[in-house]
Design a protein around this nucleic acid. Structure first.
Length: 261
DNA sequence: ATGGCTAGGCCCCCTAGA
């Protein structure tokens, strides 16, 4: 099965690209982030016409996440990251889909950006990561194929940026952000891309500004984390870089894992 | 040298993104 993550930067602005991607890349499950619309405005009919069912956790204007699946969800999706009583931001949705003879659990994650550092936004990012770690620890106990896919807004290592120096004062590359990302991995997850390649120049985001795409001034911040039961089935990873060269692209490109499930 | 582009909403100027 193929599971893909993509920060679409407005699902309504990107509808043509989304439909094209579903037809070309044929993901079994597609995790979307930054829908930038409420549930009612999600293009459900258009997605269903392509053979997908959608679990949508929308929000007006900002954030918003969804999971599209070819197969029906096995249970009701979980909307919102558990443990956040006061958290109204739509950044997490989790669902269970059939996979082979069993199931796979998939989460679509839009981790807070956290800029600028030293503000409540950065504190929110770190607190959100702590909640994600706590929840992920609980999910691992199920010993299922589990894929935590999304825009983590974390550059894990210097080789994950074309110009690491440009990011030293950015929330995405702070030691605390990277430490918590490692803490998450240390629970027992595999960073799918790094399980298949040690290469640099593997980016998933290029800013709209300053000719970042033309200069390949990219960063790798969209990740698929696999539980041991999923990692054992990892066949390959694809960064759909060609999507960034389209007219009116998202600033992120889709990233897929292919699993023998 | 320069926050240089894109999107949404409170819509002609602001916030947010990363």
């Amino acid at each position: 099965m193929r599971v893909t993550t993509w920060n679409v930067n407005s699902v309504r602005q990107r509808l043509e690209h989304l439909v094209g991607f579903l037809r070309e890349a044929k993901p079994d499950v597609l995790c979307l982030q930054e829908l930038k619309c409420m549930d009612e405005a999600f293009p459900r009919a258009e997605v269903e016409a392509e053979g997908y069912t959608a679990a949508v956790h929308g929000q007006k204007g900002f954030n918003g996440v969804a999971i599209l699946s070819r197969a029906s969800f096995q249970e009701e999706a979980v909307s919102g990251l558990p443990g956040g009583v006061e958290d109204l931001q739509a950044r997490y949705v989790e669902g269970v889909v059939p996979a082979g003879k069993g199931i796979a659990r998939v989460a679509s994650i839009y981790l807070p950006n956290g800029n600028p550092i030293g503000t409540e936004k950065f504190a929110y990012k770190l607190a959100w990561m702590d909640r994600l770690i706590a929840h992920a620890r609980g999910l691992l106990a199920y010993e299922e194929p589990l894929i935590l896919a999304g825009d983590y807004n974390v550059i894990p290592e210097p080789r994950d940026a074309k110009d690491p120096k440009a990011w030293v004062d950015d929330a995405l590359f702070q030691p605390e952000s990277r430490q918590k990302f490692r803490e998450l991995l240390a629970l027992g997850f595999t960073d799918a891309l790094r399980a298949t390649s040690d290469a640099g120049d593997l980016y998933t985001f290029w800013d709209y500004q300053a000719g970042a795409w033309q200069r390949n001034h990219g960063i790798r911040i969209d990740h698929l984390l696999l539980s041991p039961q999923a990692a054992d089935r990892l066949r390959g990873v694809v960064i759909h870089k060609e999507m960034r060269a389209l007219e009116k692209p998202s600033d992120h490109v889709p990233v897929s894992v292919d699993l023998d499930l």
